[in-house]
Design a protein around this nucleic acid. Structure first.
Lengths: 329, 329
DNA sequence: TTGTAAGCGTTATCAA
DNA sequence: TTGATAACGCTTACAA
């Protein structure tokens, strides 16, 4: 049994196909006819054909999301918020995972997916790298958690985030400071957000007369926490160290190690994370909140706006991080 | 400047549009004309229009992947392999993330994405749940890491995996046995793979005269390892316990805790993981290997085969887990 | 082996 | 406010 088309709907409701199209796309139609058409649509279980729509010059109502390797709750929650917001505007999210640079090449050679989208959003991607690919992203591009003067973007003030972390740790009376982070340079597609947190942190320290020694930056990773030994060392040799974990994930590692060593956070050492992931509340971790849901939602709004009402100016949206005080600092 | 169409190509190469289409889709064309057409395609930078193709009844060369919440290296590596294999056959992967049941409803109401795909693959999804949604997945559906009598599927023998783990631990001379897992029932979309590992493990234990006590199953989670205290307890109170971590992620937690407690794996306790994630080699973790790349590739082959040569029989493909012996057991 | 022409299901233009 | 009708770019009979 064939799927009903716009013609079937027109026939059943006794109007022309153009009228049905108007009902579908919000043209002006007399209320009574509109009602008949809607009834026919429901009655037949009609659904517009996307390909025909696109071909005829209509919009796809699809937005492409360039997704980095998902490692933390952060990515997932932002994507979810983004998706929800798009859906409420009747748009659909399609994910393009960035497994490697090879994938970009592929998109360059066959950008049908991009053409079949009304717009695109890059998610924590290194724009230098992306733009170097010479892919034509079209005009409707929004950057999420990366910055550029040439595109709309939604990002968090990571420098401020670092500063806030420093202030808390100083306030707690820490004498020596440490950061736990990961080496972004290994990641082809990384943005410089971790760098910024680090910079904000050490600048704020200096402003108060402290200093972040170079060797006090500990590198870990998301998959396999390699910082373990350094953490044991710090926790046993330092007097009440102040530790800034540039992602909550790293803080977890520290919390566990400390627990096994019978060191009490907030007493024997001070710890502040970054992200405010859902588990941190239970763990009593003091952390820097990123309003992930708001940010995801904002990105969706921005791209939809760009698609529907093209304007000639840029709209960079900067979100502000906030300290969530709990037990560890 | 408009994009070139099939007509432009036909005109430039002096043939009819049908001939160009044949070149594009692999119909029989004289070699010399074929060459001319290909030259024209390159010359113009022509790219077929997906919507027109689909509308005209052609294939989209697109496969939809239902993605669960990605937490571990496992998901990422399988997706990558799947994607690579699809690409080599000139297919494209589109991800449909399963944020929640709500997302399924949405697909039910507007399954244009599904219609715009030639086939679909579910990735570690609970099929009961998925089928209950009454979504029409079409005939071209392949299940990855879940089983059903009604569809092609690619899966690992998880019961065997559990058995292998038990055998290793017994061989090491462990007296008391533990498992660390997570509670799948909380996850709407989970498959029963963890259950199966657990069953295989305890059955094998019993066959050798041992027993897995109910209270010896420790529940953790991927986001926030809640098993920490239990692990400390086990490690300090048991004489050389044998621990089966049903995912490498959980094993990592144990390794770290042990390290902080100065307990040596392979001596003070025995530990075996599951997955053979990339970091496990460096960590010296004995684990059960899942051939992720092979499995992802096989799933791709299966779905492409289904699309291109529909057959009337089912092809369940069972992969076998293998022990990777390292230092912890 | 090739070309002509009839769809595919929409949107958009233009008259009515 | 409506309805014909011409695109949109392709695949696929069918004819040559």
């Amino acid at each position: 049994m064939k799927k009903p088309t716009i013609r079937d709907v027109a026939r059943l409701s006794g109007v022309g196909i153009a009228t049905v199209s108007r009902v579908l796309n919000g043209g002006s139609v007399k209320l009574s006819t509109k009602k008949r058409v809607i009834w026919a649509i429901k009655n037949l279980g009609y659904e517009p054909n996307t390909s025909a729509r696109t071909l005829a010059g209509g919009k796809t109502r699809r937005v492409l999301l360039f997704m980095p390797e998902v490692r933390t709750e952060f990515h997932w929650r932002v994507m979810k918020a983004f998706d929800d917001a798009l859906d409420s505007q009747n748009y659909e999210m399609v994910i393009y995972p960035m497994f490697s640079g090879k994938r970009l090449e592929r998109l360059y050679n066959d950008n049908s997916l991009l053409r079949d989208s009304d717009g695109a959003v890059t998610f924590t991607m290194n724009m230098d790298f992306l733009l170097k690919s010479r892919i034509d992203f079209g005009r409707n591009l929004v950057l999420f958690e990366s910055q550029s003067d040439d595109y709309d973007c939604v990002y968090l003030d990571n420098v401020l985030g670092g500063r806030l972390a420093a202030e808390i740790l100083i306030e707690n009376g820490a004498k020596e400071f440490f950061t736990v982070t990961f080496d972004e340079r290994n990641s082809l597609l990384a943005t410089e957000n971790f760098d910024k947190r680090q910079v904000g942190f050490s600048k704020a320290l200096e402003k108060s007369g402290y200093r972040l020694k170079k060797e006090n930056t500990v590198y870990s990773s998301f998959f396999f926490e390699t910082a373990h030994e350094r953490i044991v060392e710090i926790l046993s040799e330092c007097d009440r160290p102040g530790i800034f974990a540039l992602a909550d994930n790293f803080a977890l590692e520290i919390l566990q190690t400390a627990s096994a060593m019978k060191k009490v956070p907030g007493v024997d050492f001070f710890l502040i994370g970054y992200d405010n992931q859902s588990w941190t509340e239970r763990a009593g971790l003091t952390t820097i909140n990123q309003p992930m849901e708001d940010m995801g939602k904002k990105a969706a709004e921005l791209i939809v706006q760009k698609i529907e009402n093209p304007v000639s100016y840029l709209q960079p949206v900067k979100f502000l991080p906030e300290v969530v005080r709990r037990k560890t600092a």
